[in-house]
């Protein structure tokens, strides 16, 4: 759970940096998208790094979900018949990890279909790389749909909450007991969560507002 979770946080941060290129304009964004398809070339075949990442992330998602279900089942058995009332915000966040995680899983499926595969849910003007990439145009076309833009932004809020609590739990799972490290770690988790919301969730809203077009 912790190892795959840490991997996802790393991925989300790198993905966020990539997304921010949208503010540098269509050329920069498309150029970055094209580079992602040929990282490591000519040492490695084109798209090999991309596919390696896809496989590792895909397996990690399965492991993460498998671990979540196992933990849920163990907790249910250990808790007994009586449900607990959840107290503070931290506790509520912990209780929201599983339902929130399910929504995030659905979001990932939609996101892949929308902007990578061009399957169900993609905008009418979606274009595959031919070989020029059309990532920027696809993004603007997708986020111009208000419902989709709102879903993206709301999912980013969920993801931030998931990361905030997951990050704090990482500290426990890796056995960090030092007082200073624990304080710094929690602040860092808050900053990552904030960056995810501020960076990612703003893009669909700015497309809707017409700032990015």
């Amino acid at each position: 759970m912790a190892v795959t979770g840490l991997l996802f946080v790393g991925f989300v941060v790198v993905h966020l940096f990539g997304n921010l290129k949208v503010f540098a304009g269509a050329d920069a964004f498309d150029h970055y998208a094209a580079w992602l398809r040929e990282v490591g070339y000519p040492l490695l075949p084109k798209q090999s790094v991309l596919w390696a990442l896809r496989i590792v992330l895909g397996l990690s998602v399965l492991a993460h979900i498998g671990a979540a279900v196992t933990l849920w089942w163990r907790a249910r058995k250990a808790r007994g018949r009586h449900r607990r009332r959840l107290g503070g915000a931290e506790s509520q966040l912990a209780g929201f990890m599983l339902p929130g995680g399910l929504v995030i899983a659905l979001f990932i499926l939609f996101h892949l279909s929308d902007l990578t595969i061009g399957g169900p849910g993609a905008s009418a003007s979606f274009r595959h790389p031919d070989p020029n990439v059309h990532a920027y145009a696809n993004l603007v076309a997708s986020f111009s749909r208000p419902l989709v833009a709102c879903f993206y932004s709301a999912s980013m809020l969920l993801l931030a909450a998931h990361i905030f609590h997951g990050w704090r739990t990482l500290l426990q799972d890796f056995g960090a007991t030092g007082a200073r490290l624990r304080r710094v770690w929690v602040i860092l988790g808050g900053l990552i969560a904030l960056a995810v919301v501020a960076g990612n969730a703003s893009i669909p809203l700015l497309v809707l507002a017409g700032v990015i077009s």
Binding site: L71, K77, A78, G87, E90, A94, G95, M97, T169, Q172
Partner: peptide
Amino acid sequence: DEFGPCSSYGECVE
């Protein structure tokens, strides 16, 4: 193993 896993709810410290 006889007990459940910790998910950092923090209810115990309360």
